[in-house]
């Protein structure tokens, strides 16, 4: 019997979120006295044995041409075969682009209850209770999974990766692979250099910047910090920035280590998408801006003055 963790790849590389999921799954296995096993679909450029560092004992590697592009139906059928053969009791996904499509499907197929967006290890003292954020980060819920098999998708950035000693046994897995009905015809990279949903640091700016021509200093700060870019909704609606940078209630929800908000008022709908960030810094010229109530650090000042100074100060820290 196992705790089975789905390892998600992009261009043959394992996503950071999957390292979080592997650590999380291995901890659950320890907690309930099962072994942690991982499953990788399609070609990889990674050394899969090294996933043992997270506490995984075995890696099932399913290789087939049809698995080199993502299709939720095809992937689900393969994952169900692996889950059944390994007697998986708990199946872990990252709550990222792949997990959002796969976890619900796999759960249905295995008649398993799903908690999407878990933020902590389950409490197994009385049943199997998983914690997740609800009401867009304004509350936390404890959700009991009542089925025999459990599926959990772990929120990105919610669990710290741990790495120890250990190598996993890599075993090829022969699965029946269907032909996909969908066909991936292209991919494109978005503006930022760092993926917003995976970023450790996010630099975000709002209407206080007055116009798209002023984003240069924001980009420079983000580059210096190795951060992803984000923006408030009116900024995306006005096409100052692309819509995939829009964070908040109706945009993307992020939970980075550090969120820096520049010229954003901190409306409740904006906060709903960023309030799970570990540390929040607000730069706003209005001392009454509601965002300061949700912030850890703040500067009451003009963004056009403060942001270049901040970039310079970070450069100094990094010794550049």
């Amino acid at each position: 019997m196992s705790v089975l963790i789905f390892v998600d790849q992009l261009d043959g590389h394992i996503k950071k979120a999957s390292h979080e999921a592997l650590t999380y799954g291995a901890k659950i296995a320890e907690q309930i006295g099962e072994t942690a096993e991982a499953v990788v679909l399609g070609n990889t450029n990674e050394d899969l044995a090294s996933l043992g560092q997270h506490g995984v004992k075995k890696v099932h590697h399913v290789q087939a041409e049809g698995l080199n592009q993502f299709d939720s139906q095809v992937y689900t059928k393969v994952l169900v075969q692996v889950a059944e053969q390994t007697g998986a009791k708990v199946i872990i996904f990252s709550n990222n682009s792949s997990g959002k499509a796969l976890a619900p499907r796999v759960a249905v197929r295995l008649k398993a209850g799903l908690v999407a967006g878990a933020t902590a290890l389950p409490d197994t003292s009385n049943g199997f209770v998983v914690r997740k954020n609800v009401f867009s980060g304004k509350a936390i819920a404890n959700v009991a999974i009542k089925s025999e098999i459990k599926v959990i998708s772990l929120n990105v950035n919610a669990f710290t990766i741990s790495q120890g000693e250990g190598t996993a046994e890599v075993v090829p897995f022969n699965a029946t692979v269907d032909t996909a009905k969908t066909n991936v015809t292209g991919t494109s990279k978005t503006s930022g250099k760092v993926a917003l949903t995976e970023a450790d640091i996010v630099v975000s700016a709002g209407r206080g910047l007055k116009g798209p021509e002023n984003w240069g200093m924001v980009e420079e700060l983000a580059d210096t910090l190795g951060a992803a870019l984000a923006c408030s909704r009116p900024v995306a609606d006005a096409h100052w920035r692309p819509h995939n940078e829009h964070v908040g209630q109706t945009g993307i929800a992020v939970a980075p280590n550090l969120y820096i908000a520049i010229g954003i008022s901190g409306a409740i709908q904006h906060l709903a998408g960023v309030n799970r960030s570990k540390t929040i810094v607000v730069i706003n010229k209005d001392a009454e801006a509601p965002f300061f109530k949700a912030a850890d650090y703040g500067i009451v000042g003009d963004a056009f003055d403060v942001v270049p100074k901040l970039t310079a100060a970070v450069q100094k820290l990094k010794g550049k």
């Binding site: 993502f70 682009s97 009905k181 015809t185 991919t187 494109s188 990279k189 978005t190 949903t197 995976e198």
Partner: peptide, 13 residues
């Protein structure tokens, strides 16, 4: 669809 750091284009019947 949104993927990490970009978008993927999919054709589907």
């Amino acid at each position: 669809r949104e993927i990490e750091g970009g978008e993927e284009t999919i054709e589907c019947p």
